[in-house]
Design a protein around this nucleic acid. Structure first.
Length: 285
DNA sequence: AAGATAACCAACCGCCGAAAT
DNA sequence: GATTTCGGCGGTTGGTTATCT
């Protein structure tokens, strides 16, 4: 017979994660590292499937995640990578430290696509839109939908047909407009080398219209748990350095543990991860 | 002020290749 | 070698918030 089932799906919880669930998951991974996801829900006391835990961790709870809107540079990078890789969001995300495939995918669908169309560029082919397409956007959408269904022409399939596209990506740095940094060789930055700018209130990441509004709700929810120690000096939700990790890691040993885990685990380790002088991972909520 | 619509994004679904048995 | 699950990926959905009328 094959492997054992991942989890019996009866009675599993779905939908948005609560602060308590987040806390359980973070605590578990902090003390055990990332092991097999199948075992995580049971061991962490969660009524979720392992897949859901993995998704929550990689897309939201990981300490090395940047949050907030993509910078202009990141956006250009995404466009350029998309032109070469197609909808291979995970490959694209691997070139943007601290960003997830889901985040990039969402940003592409909500922002970049529109931007490119406005500029008269087909977001699928990265070539100028024909006038017919410009005048009949619905037809264009249908065409695009058809294209994606067509295995030979769909960007995903066409790129997979090539031998290891991601290995042969040539970044057109001049197009991006930033010198001296080839994204094909994302530099591994040592923690001490990272200077993550504090998330100033004026930046997009602190705007309530971005994902941070969810963080705000999340934090309010978190306040309901008495075992979380709220800072006594009156914390603003939009404090520059604020993060969930401040709540999960109540003391210095926890913070050290998080640091150790994130540096020792190849799955957690990420070149973009930043720590401030207190060894606290920056979370740009 | 209220309802309608658009925008955003976290989370789910289903598929696929790799790995385990 | 066949069967089954795991882990990862991309597409899609649905709830929430913002903006418009």
């Amino acid at each position: 017979m094959g492997r054992q089932p991942c989890c019996d799906k009866v009675g599993l919880k779905k939908g948005p994660w609560t602060a308590e669930e987040d806390k359980k998951l973070i605590s578990f991974i902090l003390s055990n590292g990332q092991c097999c996801w199948r075992a995580v829900p049971k061991l962490a006391g969660l009524l979720r499937c392992g897949k859901s835990c993995r998704l929550r961790w990689t897309n939201y709870l990981r300490p090395d995640l940047k949050r907030g809107l993509l910078s202009e540079y990141e956006e250009k990078l995404v466009i350029d990578l998309h032109a070469q890789l197609g909808n291979r969001w995970s490959k694209i995300a691997s070139h943007l430290p601290g960003r997830t495939d889901n985040e990039i995918k969402n940003h592409w669908n909500t922002h970049i696509k529109k931007k490119l169309r406005k500029m008269g560029i087909d977001p699928l082919t990265h070539k100028p839109l024909s006038t017919a397409e410009e005048h009949h956007p619905r037809q264009e959408q249908k065409k695009q939908a058809d294209k994606t269904k067509e295995p030979e022409t769909a960007s995903l399939k066409s790129t997979t047909a090539k031998p290891k596209v991601e290995d042969t990506v040539e970044m057109t740095v001049n197009d991006i407009g930033i010198n001296g940094f080839c994204t094909d060789e994302v530099p591994l930055i040592e923690p001490h080398e990272i200077l993550v700018p504090n998330c100033a209130p004026s930046t997009s990441s602190s705007s309530p219209s971005s994902s941070s509004c969810h963080s705000s709700m999340f934090l309010e929810e978190l306040q309901q748990f008495p075992d979380f120690e709220w800072p006594s000096n009156g914390l603003s939700l939009w404090d520059d350095d604020f993060s969930i990790w401040d709540f999960v890691m109540n003391d210095e040993s926890d913070k050290k543990l998080a640091l150790d885990h994130s540096l020792s685990s190849p799955l957690i380790q990420c070149p973009g991860m930043g720590f401030d002088q207190d060894s606290r991972p920056h979370q740009l909520f």
